[in-house]
Design a protein around this nucleic acid. Structure first.
Ligand code: MG
Length: 318
DNA sequence: GTGGTACCTGTACT
DNA sequence: AAGTACAGGTACC
């Protein structure tokens, strides 16, 4: 995999027993430390990003014993960690995600980086032919590393200065104003404000985030889980609602829309089963719903999910 | 609290 | 080939 993490282009490759990493480039502004120090630093960043200090095996065991279906999914999808993302990037990204499809979201974020983010040039002498191209988000073929332009995510300051009109031009649609308004609010609140929410309790985090433009309950919970250390938070979108109806409480099907109460019920159902790390458990169940992971699941389970979708179960609410 | 509506835009479908 | 539904919701009434 090759992609951008913070100010650097990183290459990761995994073998059966190890994971290797290499830094291919970094933003010009970051004064580059001696190579040996950079390696140690990047290793620490990766440990942080993948949350490797949190043991996953005990969680899997706990979830598997709590739920029969989860037992089989856990066996089929090992290593499903929640990434500890950079809060600002995470926030803007999920604002872009609302009422939108995954394909366009990716395109918008890439446009945002290319237009407003600092460019990352690769180091001299990087053997790009040797770089991994394991289907990372931004690399699609063996030649691509050479031509691909890499950009870090833009700063709050830059986004605050962007015009709504120009943002719309990048394909953001009506979310353009959300991005600008939220960027202005963040600038107003000061540099460390968002990250400081990592020290706050779940309810405070939610309340503070929802006060931002373009941030409702679902986006807030995504930011809380994926960047603010709120491990028990369960973001409830249409997929997660389906899961809850199908697996946990059929009576939820009677609900016509995802009201705040229904939202809370779904979260409570997850927490009653999976406990403190319900957000992580949710990540695993959510992943199992996605097409790219379906092929790894037991055939009868895939069949069951397909039947639910076809039989007026999934999406039958609205 | 709940129910209803409008909303950018690309893509899949009919 | 035009017309419509839908997608990792939110704001506003
Ligand atoms: Mg809000």
């Amino acid at each position: 995999w090759v992609g951008v993490l913070g100010p650097r282009v990183l290459e990761l490759r995994q073998t059966e027993s190890d994971c290797f990493f290499r830094c291919l480039g970094e933003v010009a502004s970051a004064e580059s430390a001696p190579a040996a120090e950079t390696v140690d630093h990047v290793r620490a960043e990766l440990v942080d990003y993948f949350q490797l200090s949190k043991p996953l095996a005990p969680m899997y065991e706990h979830w598997a014993s709590a739920d029969r279906r989860m037992n089989r999914i856990a066996a089929a999808l090992p290593g499903m960690r929640v990434l500890r993302q950079e809060p600002h990037e995470c926030l803007f990204s999920f604002i872009c995600s609302s009422n939108n499809n995954i394909g366009r979201i990716g395109g918008i974020l890439q446009s945002l980086r290319a237009r407003y983010g600092p460019r990352i040039s690769l180091y001299e002498g990087i053997d790009t032919a040797d770089a991994a191209t394991f289907g990372g988000d931004e690399i699609t073929d063996l030649q691509a590393v050479d031509d691909e332009a890499f950009f870090a995510f833009p700063s709050v300051e830059t986004l605050a200065e962007a015009s709504e009109e120009e943002l719309r031009g990048l394909g953001l649609g009506y979310r353009a104003d959300f991005i600008r308004q939220t960027a202005l609010a963040l600038r107003q609140k000061g540099d460390g404000w968002l990250c400081s929410l990592r020290e706050e309790d779940v309810d405070t985090v939610r309340e503070e985030l929802c006060a931002l433009r373009g941030v409702g309950p679902k986006v807030a919970d995504c930011v809380a889980l994926f960047s603010l250390d709120q491990v028990e938070t369960v973001p409830v979108d249409t997929h997660v609602w389906d899961i809850a109806c199908r697996e946990f409480d059929p009576s939820l099907r009677e609900c016509l829309s995802l009201t705040p109460n229904v939202y809370a019920r779904v979260g409570a159902l997850f927490r009653s089963r999976f406990g403190t790390y319900s957000g992580w458990a949710h990540q695993l169940l959510f992943a199992a719903e996605l097409p790219q992971f379906r092929s790894r699941l037991p055939a009868d389970m895939v069949e069951e999910m397909a039947e639910w979708r076809g039989g007026g179960g999934g999406g039958a609410h609205k």
